[in-house]
Design a protein around this nucleic acid. Structure first.
Lengths: 345, 345
DNA sequence: CTGAAAGCGCTTACAG
DNA sequence: CTGAAAGCGCTTACAG
């Protein structure tokens, strides 16, 4: 292999192979027909020079960067690293790559990031757990850059999203806890300014109400460990104490469990049953052994990338709000109702 | 704001503002002098049209993409999500953005990713916990794309890296455990094919040897939870059992702690003292309360990005191997020697 | 199948 | 300070 200390272009390869520059281009852009002998000559020359097409130039001319902008709220919650890896794998398999940004869930952090992504000419965007301002979503529609919200629903006609079936997940949590005989069931909810948090809570309380019951309490944990721990303390500060807690996600549930065991010296599940939401990998650690509703990251990712790529290929593609059913994963942190059907671990 | 369903270019703005296209360019590329009245006219026109310079075209011509390729081995170990967020923040602050890829630590996964990054015309690369083949590192040097290894050293003259001072960290772990009176100290090491793993072990055993002691055992945990748990079981299977364990990173240490408590029913630190390495956020959770050596992610990230950007600006920049001292963070998982100086939590 | 020509949307000397 | 011109490294009709 010949050393090349400076950038080698298609023209260099063309000269070395004795062909025109467009022919080199044809060899490297799939679908073009080049005579086999010519192709081999070009490939040999390219190999010798260490040539590789400049994707910047290619993107400029094709109008497709094959880049997907991914915006993630925070990686604190272990659901996101897991999802991010899977998103990357799925997109790479489809020959796209990721430009990533982190942004807290505030318009004034998210909007500038989206502008940057726009300047980078991304072909589409995935917004994980961040919401988008109306202004921006309109803007994206105008310039024709499709986007899908991942794990965060948002009202609005033209907004595609992929989430768990949060309402029905909330119901399932309540159903399980009621079936186990609990009567003082508290809910430390997901952030009530997010649809995820609202819907999980709505499903939970609706089921309870339909059984003629009321929630012991519903308090916003704001998807924060600290807040969830504080709410837990408050919940047990009075005379009347809950006998079960449904927590809006696993990330908070770990903090609740810790507070219950380490601070309040309670036994889980004997004193209190605990249910989370997500089924992140840590939930299955023996340390936590958390009963939870699984958000199937694989399927959510697959739904997200395929919808997004469809939107990119065909702008007329419907902006769906896809909900993926959550399965209850029964582990040791919550009392198991008699006759409850066995589930895998 | 005028709606624009199609892409708006500098030329459109120029026409609307009644100036030439290069003048528009000058307004948007910093440093160029434009009369104030003209600048304002152009900015107004740009705002009306929703114009934003196409960074692809800009990069093509300047030869700088302001993109840093980041390759991460896996996000399993919570150190990486934490570091990744910080890397992103640091790079964004310097007006760079990230193109991210995940690759297992194998040449045949890493090399193709680096090729892709090369085609994308990244200005530099950060390789987090992946090693690079000699072929590729030579190649990168030839094409003049600087890179720095993050949290993974590698021998070789022209290879820049930022790591913890792993050897001295290993020594500190041994020193602390010896001072606490332990005499049967085992080491579940980091992956012995990584310099991190080797050096932490070397520091540990060297200190012991200098005290006239020997390690109870040194077994490779391979940075894997499963492997670490299995090694823990093996360690306690015989008649002679360790009274302390130094684990090659926190990620494994959590699995060791779990096995110790949940499976082997041992009390930590009364039966066994445990020390990890990294000080990821979880280490401070009461659930784990892990004594550990802190890898200061902030400082490592800062060292990484500033060295990389220096290399980008001035190719003559020395390829340093920067080591950042690890501080021992004393928590509850290991017996505390008498008279040990108090440290912050 | 292949070459000559045009052009993607910018930046950057070069004149004025 | 500003415009006309050239050019970054490709792809894509258009002829042949």
């Amino acid at each position: 292999m010949t050393k090349s200390s400076t950038k080698v272009t298609a023209l260099d390869v063309a000269k070395r192979a004795g062909v025109s520059q467009p022919t080199v281009s044809r060899v490297f852009s799939r679908g073009s027909m080049v005579r086999k002998s010519v192709r081999e000559k070009v490939e040999a020359a390219a190999r010798d020079l260490g040539y590789m097409p400049n994707t910047l130039a290619r993107s400029l001319i094709t109008g497709k960067s094959r880049t997907i902008g991914v915006v993630v709220a925070y990686l604190n919650n272990p659901f996101y690293p897991e999802a991010l890896e899977k998103l990357s794998a799925s997109l790479n398999a489809k020959n796209y790559h990721i430009s990533i940004f982190f942004a807290a869930n505030l318009d004034d952090e998210v909007d500038p990031v989206i502008e940057k992504l726009l300047a980078q000419q991304v072909d589409g965007m995935i917004l994980a757990s961040v919401s988008i301002s109306n202004k921006l979503s309109q803007r994206l529609n105008e310039v024709g850059i499709p986007f899908v919200l991942f794990n965060r629903g948002q009202l609005g006609d033209n907004i595609a999203s992929v989430t768990a079936a949060n309402y029905s997940g909330g119901r399932k949590a309540a159903e399980f806890l009621v079936a186990a005989g609990h009567s003082r069931i508290a809910h430390i909810s997901g952030w009530q300014k997010s649809l995820n948090g609202q819907q999980r809570q709505a499903g939970f309380t609706d089921y309870l109400n339909q059984q003629g019951m009321e929630a012991f309490a519903c308090i916003d944990g704001e998807f924060s460990r600290e807040k969830a721990a504080q709410v837990t303390r408050d919940l047990f500060a009075g005379d009347k104490k809950p006998d079960a807690i449904f927590v809006g996600n696993d990330h908070m549930a770990f903090a609740v469990l810790e507070t219950l065991k380490t601070e309040l010296r309670l036994n889980v599940p004997n004193d209190v049953s605990l249910i989370g939401y997500d089924d992140v990998q840590m939930a299955s650690w023996k340390t936590f052994d958390l009963t939870t509703l699984r958000q199937p990251a694989n399927r959510m990712v697959e739904a997200t990338t395929s919808m997004l790529l469809n939107m990119i290929e065909d702008p007329a593609t419907l902006r769906q709000k896809i909900e993926i059913e959550s399965e209850l994963i029964v582990r040791g942190s919550a009392r198991i109702p008699d006759n409850w059907p066995k589930s895998e671990k």
